[in-house]
Amino acid sequence: MRKALAYLAVTLVVLAVGALAVDTGFAINAERSFARSLSSSGDTKVRYEPEVTISGFPAVRSIADGHYSAIGITARAVDLIGAGTCTEQSPCHVDLRSRLTDVRIRGPERFFRRSTSFDIGSEKGSVTLDSVAVGRLLGIDDLTVNTPAPENKAGGGGPQDGLLSRTSGVLLTGSVSPEPGRPKVKVSVVVDLSIVGGRLRIFATDFYDGPAEHSDTTVPDEEREAVLRKFSAVLPELPMPWGSPPKSARSSGSDIVVDGSGAVGGNLSMSIFITLGVDTYILYTDNGRRPPWYADGSAPP
Rank of each mutant, 00 (worst) to 15 (best):
R106N: 15
R106I: 08
F111R: 11
V132E: 13
D102F: 01
H93N: 14
C92P: 09
F111V: 07
R114I: 04
R114F: 00
S117R: 13
V103E: 15
S122G: 04
G121D: 12
T128W: 09
G135F: 00
R114N: 10
V132W: 07
I120M: 08
S126E: 11
F111W: 05
T101H: 13
R113P: 02
I120T: 05
D130Q: 11
F118I: 02
R99E: 15
D95Y: 06
D95G: 07
G107H: 10
P91S: 08
G125F: 02
S90F: 04
V132L: 09
I140V: 08
S98M: 12
I105L: 15
D95L: 04
S115T: 11
E109A: 09
D95P: 08
G107I: 03
S117G: 01
D95F: 02
G139D: 11
S131E: 15
V103Q: 14
T128N: 09
S98C: 11
D102Y: 09
L138F: 01
L100P: 08
R99D: 10
I105V: 12
S131Y: 03
L96Y: 06
L138E: 13
S122P: 05
R97M: 09
S126V: 01
R104C: 04
R136Y: 04
D142V: 00
V132A: 15
T116M: 01
I120A: 01
R106A: 06
P91N: 09
D141N: 08
L129T: 06
G121R: 12
V127W: 06
S122T: 11
I140F: 00
F118Y: 15
P108R: 11
D142S: 06
F112D: 06
T128L: 07
S131L: 01
K124W: 10
D119Y: 10
R136I: 01
I120G: 00
P108L: 02
R97Q: 12
L100A: 00
T128D: 11
L138Q: 13
S90T: 11
V94L: 04
A133E: 15
C92F: 00
